[in-house]
């Protein structure tokens, strides 16, 4: 009787230590994200390269276009910079795990592939976003564009467009990590798929930078951007296990 009581106590103690599955999932995502961000901030290899690259392209644009033209096509220019600079970060996302077989260890860790993917995507998201938030004022200064007139709407578009960029970029980073010509293949595969999202983000950004808020004629682009994000996040979360584990 005594032993039964004590065993039932110890059995009852276990559920206390275990968190609900959803919270555990969020925690795993968070752990992976923090790990990636910490690794990145210690070396700063990807973010420095990406930032320098973004600034160089922005500088080149000032030679390529007149100031008037730059204002008319600001959305297109900015998203080309974001997509190119973002690729440099995304390329490193899974490639960073290759030395010392870290990728195998991550896959073997008791973390679902979906959490691994979302954690890495979020880490990439914040890094790409950081590069973009530096590029925007630089763009404004170099090209004499007053880009803050629709600041919050612009931030929404940047946030949504960047998520499209990172979700596709991260899943294809996982896919291309082991293949030949990785650096070439990633943009080759991602840019065509990203066209709808980039097109929507470019259209909206051009209007918002010009000071025109999102109206009834442009709201369909916003919906398209949100739809793209949702569809591809869902598809990626479903398929990432197949890519990483086989």
């Amino acid at each position: 009787m005594q032993s039964m009581a004590s065993s039932s106590v110890s059995v009852a103690a276990i559920p206390e230590r275990r968190r609900p599955a959803a919270i555990e999932f969020v925690r795993q995502i968070f752990v992976v994200m923090v790990k990636d961000l910490r690794a990145e901030f210690r070396t700063k290899e990807a973010i420095n390269a990406s930032l320098a690259f973004a600034l160089v392209i922005l500088l080149l644009f000032s030679f390529a276009f007149e100031e008037e033209t730059t204002r008319d096509i600001s959305g297109g220019l900015l998203w080309i910079v974001f997509a190119f600079a973002g690729t440099l970060i995304l390329n490193r996302s899974f490639a960073r795990e290759q030395p010392n077989d870290c990728l195998d260890a991550l896959i073997a860790a008791p973390v679902p592939a979906a959490a691994l993917f979302l954690g890495k995507a979020l880490a990439n998201y914040f890094l790409v976003l950081a590069v973009e938030l530096v590029s925007l004022p630089v763009f404004g200064i170099f090209h004499n564009v007053n880009w803050t007139r629709q600041f919050w709407q612009l931030m929404v578009v940047v946030a949504l467009g960047t998520w499209a960029l990172t979700v596709i970029g991260t899943i294809f980073s996982a896919l291309t990590v082991n293949i030949r010509l990785r650096e070439v293949m990633l943009p080759m595969l991602t840019y065509p798929i990203l066209i709808p999202a980039l097109l929507a983000a470019m259209m909206l950004t051009t209007d918002l930078v010009a000071g025109k808020p999102i109206g009834p004629d442009t709201v369909s682009w916003l919906k398209m951007l949100i739809g793209f994000d949702i569809i591809y996040t869902a598809v990626s979360v479903v398929l990432v296990e197949v890519i990483l584990v086989g």
Binding site: L175, P192, I193, L199, A200, M224, V235, L239, V242
Partner: peptide
């Protein structure tokens, strides 16, 4: 196979966006 699925989903989205 994964890429093929991604590409196929993209075609209608591309079509409507353009």
């Amino acid at each position: 196979a994964v890429y093929s699925i991604f590409a196929f989903i993209d075609v209608p989205i591309v079509f409507f966006s353009i």
